[in-house]
């Protein structure tokens, strides 16, 4: 499957300014992992050292759901995976 991943501006620091790269994968987790091939180092900023998605990010599918989705959610052809940044001051 092929999907677009819409990166929040803070992650575009690592994608050379590319906003919505296309990646392949059968699940959201696979797609996010596969970002690494295009942008070496980006995984480091998406996941903690135990491999869990950092909670400063929320993952949404196709901008049409109110609720974030999990990494094992299947991806369909041409889906858009949206990563939102929840960083704020404490």
């Amino acid at each position: 499957m092929s999907a677009r991943v819409k990166l929040p501006p803070i992650l575009q620091e690592l994608s050379g300014g590319i906003e919505a790269p296309e990646v392949s994968g059968n699940t959201i987790g696979e797609c996010l992992n596969n970002l690494e091939g295009q942008f070496p180092g980006i995984k480091e900023y998406l996941f903690d050292r135990r491999g869990r998605l950092l909670r400063i990010f929320g993952i949404y599918l196709n901008s049409d759901g109110l609720n974030p989705v999990e990494l094992d959610t299947p991806v369909r052809e041409n889906d858009e995976i949206v990563i939102l940044n929840f960083l704020m001051g404490g």
């Binding site: 803070i10 480091e44 900023y45 903690d48 950092l54 909670r55 400063i56 990010f57 929840f86 960083l87 704020m88 404490g90």
Partner: peptide, 14 residues
């Protein structure tokens, strides 16, 4: 669920 504790790992990464 977490209060502001969820910021720690993200800020450390950045």
């Amino acid at each position: 669920d977490f209060g502001t504790s969820y910021l720690t790992l993200g800020f450390e990464k950045m």
